[in-house]
């Protein structure tokens, strides 16, 4: 049977991808950011999954103009890195596990998550920067990736509670897949940041650290946080944290926190990162 063995959450700041692609990870500005990922880069070598279910948001690369799905699954065999205005990132093509994806899509709809299926899309920094942070600079990504995009930009975005339930439904779907697969769930985005207006540059380290404190063992405290509270406390883009709730819910009741990292800033953003091992 397939099972979710671990979860990773990380910010997906595009400038982090640019620092990697331009060989600037040892610069004074960037070194302390990348040091926070040394643990996961070592850990993943012995814990490479067969498949990552990667919860992220598209940044007006494949979605958001003509079609704004609340929850959408990439269903192509492969996804190219998107050209977000400065050329495609020089990173490998992302390959899907369409058999598992099909099973999850079917099971999620049965579970009343009416998922949008995307048959053709490129994947942007929201998906490729986490892959680079964990796997480093590689010729091929060492596992398959099922992209699940969440609308965190155009209101109304889904609630934290809804994202939590999505994680629970993903967990149940994976558990009922007959093939013996090691699956990880990744949640990306956040932490506090605002990229617009005269409030740009907002960072709320107190909120972020409380979120990190509670996510592993008392996540039920975080589930009721409203969209409005995210906007006020962690900025218009900080609401991406709801995708971390999906990751945490998919791990089930108990987790072991293997690693935690928090740093301000990377570009406009507070960087957060955790690695959880599923207990059950």
């Amino acid at each position: 049977m397939a099972r979710i063995t671990a979860g990773i959450a990380t910010s997906h700041v595009p400038a982090i991808g640019a620092a990697i692609d331009n060989g600037r990870t040892l610069d004074d500005y960037w070194k302390p950011v990348f040091e926070g990922y040394e643990f996961v880069k070592e850990w993943i070598k012995d814990n490479t999954p067969d498949v990552v279910i990667l919860i992220y948001n598209d940044h007006a690369s494949a979605l958001m103009l003509d079609i704004v799905p609340t929850f959408a699954m990439g269903f192509a065999e492969e996804f190219l890195p998107a050209d977000e205005g400065w050329g495609r990132r020089p990173v490998p093509t992302v390959y899907n596990d369409t058999d598992l994806a099909a099973h999850i899509a079917e099971q999620l709809v049965i579970d009343e998550f009416d998922l949008t299926i995307i048959n053709d899309m490129d994947v942007d920094h929201g998906l490729t920067v986490p892959l680079s942070l964990v796997f480093g600079e590689v010729e091929q990504w060492p596992c398959k990736v099922i992209p699940i995009a969440v609308n965190v930009t155009q209101f109304p975005t889904p609630s934290g509670e809804r994202c939590w339930k999505l994680g629970e439904a993903i967990r149940n779907a994976v558990k009922t897949y007959p093939e013996d697969l090691d699956v990880q769930i990744w949640g990306t985005g956040g932490m506090s940041h605002q990229l617009q207006g005269t409030r740009a540059g907002l960072i709320n380290a107190e909120f972020d650290n409380r979120f990190l404190d509670l996510l592993a063992h008392e996540p039920e405290e975080l589930v009721p946080i409203t969209r409005l509270e995210y906007l006020r406390e962690v900025g218009t883009e900080g609401i991406e944290l709801i995708m971390w709730l999906t990751m945490r819910a998919a791990l089930g009741y108990g987790v072991e926190e293997l690693h935690r990292f928090y740093r301000v800033p990377a570009s406009n953003t507070a960087v957060g990162h955790v690695v959880y091992k599923a207990r059950s």
Partner: peptide, 8 residues
């Protein structure tokens, strides 16, 4: 930003 960003 280097000094911790804009306070809420």
């Amino acid at each position: 930003m280097r000094e911790g960003g804009r306070s809420p």
